[in-house]
Computed example of a mutant assay.
Amino acid sequence: MAQQEIVFVTGNANKLKEIQKILAPVTNYKLINSALDLEEIQESSLEQIATKKVKEAVSLLPSGTPVFVEDTALGFDALNGLPGAYIKWFLKKMSLDELIKILDGFESKTGKATTTIAYSDANGKIHIFQGITHGNIVSKRGSEEFGWDAIFEPLVSEGNLGIETYSEMSKDLKNEISHRGKAFRAFKDFLLSN
């Protein structure tokens, strides 16, 4: 049986490589990429943002094309989850050093990383998958090439503080414990069972 193509809408080459590694091998699907320019609504709900984007992608692709989008947030506990879904826009206007300075007046330096995937199957039914990782917001350590990875030190297990930021750890370890890894493993399990 031929592999069915599934479209991942992203213009981020680093994200594409990471997802290809996490999803491999999903034997009945061939992951292809499309850098469609989708409208990103300003909304605090990742589910609403991702659903809107996948619906727009469906309208731009040939009928019946399975397609998925992914949105990621970084929320600070001291700020009741902000910047959250707005993290991308914060990073366009400020450096990582400036971003963590926001927490200077707060005792809590913890946060939550969340990835939400919206997948529209060949019949147009939308499925949502989400992964969450809790961690500490720290002074930047490691490479700054992948968003805010250099300031997020994940909790490796409940009650056990991590000692590395996402940027400092191996790609395999990051994919194993990260919010994105958790969301995409749930998505992968869904694809393998359908």
Score class of each variant (00 low, 15 high):
residue 17 K to I: 00
residue 18 E to A: 07
residue 18 E to H: 05
residue 19 I to M: 13
residue 19 I to G: 03
residue 19 I to Y: 01
residue 19 I to V: 15
residue 20 Q to K: 15
residue 20 Q to A: 14
residue 20 Q to L: 11
residue 20 Q to G: 14
residue 20 Q to M: 14
residue 21 K to P: 00
residue 21 K to E: 15
residue 22 I to E: 08
residue 22 I to H: 07
residue 22 I to K: 05
residue 22 I to R: 03
residue 22 I to P: 03
residue 23 L to V: 10
residue 23 L to K: 06
residue 23 L to H: 08
residue 23 L to A: 02
residue 24 A to R: 06
residue 24 A to V: 02
residue 24 A to M: 02
residue 24 A to C: 00
residue 25 P to N: 15
residue 25 P to A: 13
residue 25 P to S: 15
residue 25 P to W: 06
residue 25 P to G: 15
residue 26 V to L: 09
residue 27 T to H: 08
residue 27 T to Y: 09
residue 27 T to L: 05
residue 27 T to S: 10
residue 27 T to A: 13
residue 28 N to C: 03
residue 28 N to Q: 15
residue 28 N to S: 12
residue 29 Y to C: 12
residue 29 Y to N: 11
residue 29 Y to W: 15
residue 29 Y to D: 09
residue 29 Y to S: 10
residue 30 K to W: 00
residue 30 K to I: 08
residue 31 L to Y: 08
residue 31 L to V: 13
residue 31 L to H: 06
residue 32 I to A: 06
residue 32 I to D: 06
residue 32 I to T: 15
residue 33 N to E: 14
residue 33 N to T: 13
residue 33 N to S: 15
residue 33 N to V: 11
residue 34 S to R: 14
residue 34 S to M: 03
residue 34 S to T: 09
residue 34 S to G: 05
residue 36 L to R: 10
residue 36 L to Q: 11
residue 36 L to G: 12
residue 36 L to E: 12
residue 36 L to N: 13
residue 37 D to T: 15
residue 37 D to G: 11
residue 37 D to C: 06
residue 38 L to R: 07
residue 38 L to E: 08
residue 38 L to S: 11
residue 39 E to L: 05
residue 39 E to S: 07
residue 39 E to Y: 01
residue 39 E to G: 01
residue 39 E to N: 08
residue 39 E to R: 04
residue 40 E to H: 01
residue 40 E to N: 01
residue 40 E to G: 00
residue 41 I to G: 09
residue 41 I to K: 14
residue 41 I to N: 12
residue 42 Q to L: 11
residue 43 E to G: 01
residue 43 E to C: 13
residue 44 S to L: 14
residue 44 S to M: 10
residue 44 S to P: 05
residue 44 S to R: 10
residue 44 S to N: 13
residue 45 S to F: 04
residue 45 S to N: 08
residue 45 S to G: 04
residue 46 L to A: 12
residue 46 L to V: 10
residue 46 L to W: 06
residue 47 E to Q: 10
residue 47 E to F: 02
residue 48 Q to C: 00
residue 49 I to R: 07
residue 49 I to E: 08
residue 49 I to K: 06
residue 49 I to L: 07
residue 50 A to Q: 03
residue 50 A to H: 04
residue 50 A to F: 02
residue 50 A to K: 02
residue 51 T to A: 04
residue 51 T to P: 01
residue 51 T to R: 06
residue 52 K to P: 00
residue 52 K to R: 07
residue 53 K to D: 02
residue 53 K to H: 00
residue 54 V to W: 01
residue 54 V to I: 01
residue 54 V to M: 06
residue 54 V to K: 01
residue 54 V to N: 05
residue 56 E to N: 10
residue 56 E to L: 09
residue 56 E to K: 11
residue 56 E to F: 03
residue 56 E to S: 06
residue 57 A to W: 02
residue 58 V to E: 13
residue 58 V to K: 11
residue 58 V to W: 05
residue 58 V to S: 02
residue 59 S to H: 02
residue 59 S to G: 07
residue 59 S to L: 06
residue 59 S to F: 07
residue 60 L to V: 00
residue 60 L to G: 03
residue 60 L to C: 09
residue 60 L to R: 15
residue 60 L to I: 00
